[in-house]
Structure formats: structure tokens, C-alpha cells
Design a binder for these strands. Structure first.
Lengths: 369, 369
DNA sequence: ATTTAAAATTAGCACGTTCCAAAACAGAGG
DNA sequence: CCTCTGTTTTGGAACGTGCTAATTTTAAAT
């Protein structure tokens, strides 16, 4: 009691003293030692308070926390990591943020980080392995404890491996062949199969697969699902119905005339992703084709925008947000447990039917062909 | 020469030694000292090499850099900041990442960071001042040297000020009244004025202003521009034409019937932002209104999606990416110069006319009303 | 050879935190 | 009064890097 009162007096004295120039260090940073001095305890005690240790007496804890908020102290995690603490920072390196799907994934990652009290660095590799290399290096230097990585096209294992060292990594959507790291992805094959089967059931026989580059593993999987559905229906696979384009709006746009000018024109298309599908929608509209009536289109990813196109785009929903969240959670779990055994997580892909996949006149179109 | 050879031998010995368990510290981190030992120099020399100092001999530099890449050394910026170096990290705290406009802004910030060799933390405040408080605190703890902040609705100066301390902050889009910090925003008023004037020129007389909450400063400005255009054209301002909604797709959707059911229905609308406008488009389509013919709509922000709606949405382009980039650049400049004098940057807003702002039958509609 | 200047390298403390061992303290029982 | 517990508190050595001042090496000039 008496001691407490005495100490309060002491504390005030020290604040006086401090305001006269002691608190302000040359770079203005307020340290645990400053707090200790003001509270009349040692830095060790303050450290214990910060750690939430039960060892410190209630009265002392209150006094210390009081001083902390009074002075506006902010904890310096950098110093703590130096001493061996976990960093609490993870990096997210995304292949291309101009694609809304990957943006949704990024948002999912961020969301999950908040849930796990981590904080994410953000970097857009813009499909450049060089940039990707630089940002990963930078993130490591800045103390990222792990990485959620959606690798850029053309990422080479040889370059990536020494760069990563033993940094825990979770890959999303895309996988670098040979890299010993976890992987989170949607069931691309199954999703594509279901979508194609739906188009077949609607009466379509000339179904195209549009968009993406052959070098993309994701595309291989989706293409495989497409072929599987054709096989199931005993439809012959026609390579002229597979069109390779950039996975962009304009890529989809350029595919439209190609599909229509075939000797036996396509009457429907499964697109590599929604962005391509939306581009195709516009291309078809420009050519006077009524999508959903004369022509069936299904996209992939089910980005937010798919709901707002005209006609509303049917799509295979892979839930980018969920995918990102799962990846981040997996990484955080691995960081917490210290167990970096590669793990593979497959998330379901579900067909969302809207207006573009209808096929009222599909048979007519087909017979005309 | 001789010395060099001797040293190479020494180096190899030490690597041998190291692989036998010296390099691997308990947490596996490889330090400047390890590099020094392997290269047969002192840590100071390695530090100089890292700093790119001209003081170190070419031969030594090469030897050191060689060892660094050989061992896979990664620089520990945390330790450097402890010593007083700039952190090279900035935080971006965005009010709402479910709005594509703010996402574009965020991407612009990230892009600019790469240009300036900074690396950004990403956090979504989801319009929650509490979450915002937490993430800002966390970012400070993790050593962010500054903040690009698009504040959440309801952010209070009283809470924010002590939290920020003297951390350099650049606000984007929204401003916390009374906060002494830089601000980057589009010319909302002028943009809204131009858009409204365009609708008036197209023959519309009953023009609504749709979306957003009255508490938003941005909305005030846009609304002011709208009123200014009405004044210029000697049109009376009618409060029943101003509809307050959430700035979301569904918010815009609910506005459609309200606009059509007025005693004197609206024939056009300037929307608070594109998301609202797109929602309105859908609401109007559901009501059988042919937008662009019977009804004029102009959005605000010109997000990517505006190009892909049907009909294509006219909008006031404020270029979110550019806005974000400007904000980040301003912050980085202030960090580099150490000069934190608040500065205000206004970016132009330009009207982009697409298909929704036409008004073929506007007069007819009006006379019918 | 010696001096001198310039160039190259190094020792050692500081930064803000954590952790360990050890010390100080309070209360109880003798 | 002391000793014996158990509870609180504390000094000081790390952690990886940067900087200053000091030291060593090299080269040039005498």
C-alpha cells in the first residue's frame, strides 16, 4: 500500500523528467526501457507484462499498461524476431492481379491472415518470373515467415529452389513441377467435366474449349475434364475446337469469329476462365449471336462479375476467396506446428447455371451446320 | 596473390567446418558473420559489401558476394531497422476490398511500391473502425514506416490520432476531418458536374442521384457537383430524386423501383459509384426499362467491369489505380525526404461515355410523366 | 629504405527485445 | 529473531546489422 503510493509519486516525477527530453530519443522511438523507467520497474518486468505472463503482480501489470498507453508505446516486433520470435508476417505473391479471380484469391488470403493474427505482404508478379524473384527475395529480407505463392508462368524450379531455401511455401492454383511444397487447388478436371456434360445434356454437340495457354497446368486439367465428358458421351474430340488465347478479355473476344467460321461451327464453348468467357460473350454479341439461345457459354472461376454480365454467365465456381483462405490457413498451420510436410488440398468446383448455358435453339443450329 | 590462394584454401576449410554444423544455427538463420567467416573477412567488410560501398576492393567484393550466393544468405532487414535504417515497408489499409474500385486502388498502391522498392502490407478494414484500429496497430508493430489509408466509415479522429502518433500517413479518397495528413482524391465535384451536365444535354430533366450514405465526404462532393450542374441549367433540385443506399450492387438494385414509382419518375440517374450503377442497371432491366434508350445512367469510378456490362456503362473515370499510385508515391517521397508536411493532391475525373447515357426517348418519357 | 598518403579492413558498441539465472520480497511457522 | 516457502522482480547476455574510429595494408614518392 504505502509502497504503492510512494511509487505513484515516483512515477510522476519520472514523467516530468522524461518530458524534459528523455523520452524523445534521436529517432523518436519509445522503448520498453522508457516504459520501465516511467513505471518504476525493470525492462524485464515490462517484457513479462507484454508477454501476458502470470508471474507479474496485478498492480504492477496495471501500472505498466497504464504507462504504455499514456506514452503511446508501440511494441517492436522486429527486435523480438531478432531474438528468435516468429515473425507473424507472410508473403503473398500473386502471378497476376489484373485478373479478378486472382484478386479474389488475394482477398481470401488477407482475410484468413486477419483471422490468424498474421499480416500479409502483397506482391503482384505480373506473370514475370524476374519480378517474382525480386519480390520473394525482398519478402524474405523483410522477415516473411512463409509464402502463399501463385507462381508466374515460366517459373523455373532451378531458380526458385535456392531462392526459397527452407522457407515454408503453399502454392495456390498453380504448381511448380518438382517443388516440394504444399498445394491448394480446385477440382479443375471434375468441374470442367460437369460443365461440359451440362452443355451436352442441353443438346450441344459441337462444344469448343476456349482460352489459356498450353503451358498452364490448370488448363491441362480443365481440358482433360472437357475431354472426359466428351468421351463419356461418346463424342469425338475435335482439336479444331480447342482454341488457345491469352487468358484475357480480348483473348476471348478474338475467339468468337474463329468459332463461328469453322466448317462445322461450334454451338457452345467451355472457357478457360470467366475473363475469357466474358470476352467471348462480347465477341459473340458483336457477331449478332444470341448467347443462351443460339449459343451456350460456360465460364470458369465464377468471379463476381459473372453475375452482372448480360446474359448472366454460367460458370464453374471455384471460389477464389475460399481457395486463398485455405492456402493461407494451411500455411499458418504449418508455421505454427513447425511441420512443413507438403500437403495437397483439393477444393470442390461446382457448376453455377445462369443464363448463358441454355440451348433452346442449339439443335437447330447444329442441324443447320 | 599468394595471399589470395592461401585464402581460398582457408575458405574451403571453413566451409567444410561449417557444413559440419557451424553454419546451422539453432534457428537455421545464416548471418553476416557466417558469410564473413567463409569469405575470410570481418563482418564489417561484409556489411560494406552489402551497402555497396566503394571502400571495398573489387576482389574482396567478388569473393564475398560469391560466398553469399553460395550459402544462400538472405539479408536481415529487421536487424538493420533496429539499428536505425528505414524499414522499406508501408501499410495499406483499405476501407473495403469487396468494392472493386478500392481493389484497383490497392493494386495501384502495390504497383507504385514495387517502383519505389517498398513492400506493402495489405489489410482490409471491411468498414470496421475496430478492425482498422487493430491492423494499424499491428502494422506499426511490424515496422511499417508509413501508411496509405482509405479510412473506414465512422473512423474517429480521437481514436486514430494517438494510434498513429507521428507515423506519416497519406489518405486516399476519404479524409478523416481534422487529421493532419496528406490527402489524394479525384475531382469528385467536377466529375459529377460534367456527368450531370451530359445527361441534361441529352435532354433529361428528371435526373436522380443514387447511392451512398450521407456520412461519406466523397458523396457530399459528388452530390455538390450534381447540384451545381442543375443550377447551371436552371433546373430545380428535387430532394425526392436523391436516394440514399448502401454503396453495393444490391443497393443500386433497390433504387430502381423507387425511381420509377415517383409521381414524376426519373428518366436518368447519376450514381454514387459504378457498383451502385450496375445494380441499378439490373434493377431497371428487371423492370423492363431499356437503359440507354428509355433511361440514362452514369456511374462513377469507371471500374474495369463498366466496360463489360450490357449496355456498356458510361462512367466518370477517376482511375483508381492512378489514385493509389499517386498516394503511394507521395508517401514514399515524404518518407525519403523526412518532410511530413500535409499535402493535397487532386486527380482529374473524366467522363467516359458508353451506351447507358444515351437518351433517344428521354423527352418522350418525360412528357409522358 | 623510409616516409607519407591513400586505400582497405576491422573491432566494438548500439539498437529493442527475450530469456535465464538469480535476487529480493512477503508471509508463515518455528 | 530466523528459516522456509512461494511469489515478484531484476541484471545481463544474446540476436544480426550499421557505424565510427582505429588499424592494417598497399602504393607512391622521396
Amino acid at each position: 500500500m504505502n509502497w504503492n503510493v510512494l511509487n505513484m509519486g515516483l512515477k510522476n516525477d519520472m514523467i516530468e523528467d522524461a518530458t524534459r527530453g528523455r523520452t524523445e530519443r534521436r529517432d523518436g522511438r519509445l522503448t520498453i526501457v522508457d516504459v520501465a523507467r516511467h513505471a518504476g520497474v525493470s525492462k524485464s518486468t515490462v517484457s513479462l507484462v507484454l508477454a501476458g505472463s502470470g508471474l507479474v503482480a496485478e498492480a504492477t501489470r496495471e501500472r505498466v499498461t497504464g504507462v504504455m498507453s499514456e506514452l503511446g508505446y508501440v511494441y517492436h516486433r522486429g527486435a523480438a524476431t531478432l531474438r528468435g520470435a516468429k515473425s507473424g508476417v507472410i508473403g503473398m505473391v500473386i502471378n497476376d492481379l489484373s485478373n479478378p479471380f486472382f484478386v479474389e484469391m488475394a482477398i481470401g488470403i488477407e482475410e484468413a491472415c486477419q483471422g490468424g493474427a498474421y499480416i500479409p505482404f502483397l506482391a503482384n508478379a505480373a506473370e514475370s518470373p524476374l519480378r517474382q524473384h525480386q519480390v520473394i527475395r525482398s519478402m524474405r529480407e523483410h522477415g516473411a515467415g512463409g509464402l502463399v505463392l501463385s507462381p508466374a508462368i515460366g517459373t523455373s524450379l532451378a531458380e526458385l529452389k535456392p531462392l526459397l531455401g527452407d522457407l515454408p511455401v503453399v502454392q495456390v492454383m498453380r504448381r511448380v513441377p518438382g517443388l516440394k511444397a504444399s498445394f491448394v487447388a480446385p477440382e479443375n478436371r471434375e468441374g470442367a467435366r460437369k460443365a461440359t456434360a451440362h452443355l451436352i445434356a442441353a443438346g450441344h454437340r459441337r462444344i469448343a474449349f476456349v482460352g489459356g495457354f498450353a503451358s498452364l497446368g490448370v488448363r491441362d486439367e480443365r481440358l482433360a475434364g472437357y475431354r472426359a465428358a466428351l468421351d463419356d458421351a461418346r463424342l469425338e474430340f475435335d482439336p479444331s475446337l480447342v482454341i488457345e488465347t491469352a487468358p484475357t478479355y480480348s483473348g476471348g473476344g478474338t475467339a468468337a469469329p474463329q468459332l463461328l467460321n469453322l466448317v462445322a461451327p461450334a454451338t457452345a464453348a467451355l472457357c478457360f476462365n470467366d475473363v475469357v468467357a466474358i470476352g467471348l460473350l462480347r465477341g459473340l454479341a458483336a457477331a449478332g449471336v444470341r448467347v443462351g439461345e443460339d449459343f451456350g457459354v460456360i465460364g470458369f472461376d465464377d468471379i463476381e462479375e459473372a453475375k452482372h454480365t448480360f446474359p448472366a454467365l454460367s460458370s464453374v465456381a471455384v471460389n477464389g476467396r475460399n481457395l486463398g483462405a485455405r492456402a493461407a490457413q494451411l500455411l499458418m498451420r504449418q508455421l505454427a506446428s513447425g511441420d512443413h510436410e507438403p500437403e495437397t488440398v483439393l477444393c470442390p468446383a461446382t457448376l453455377v447455371i445462369r443464363a448463358t448455358s441454355g440451348a433452346k435453339n442449339a439443335n437447330a443450329t447444329e442441324t443447320r451446320a
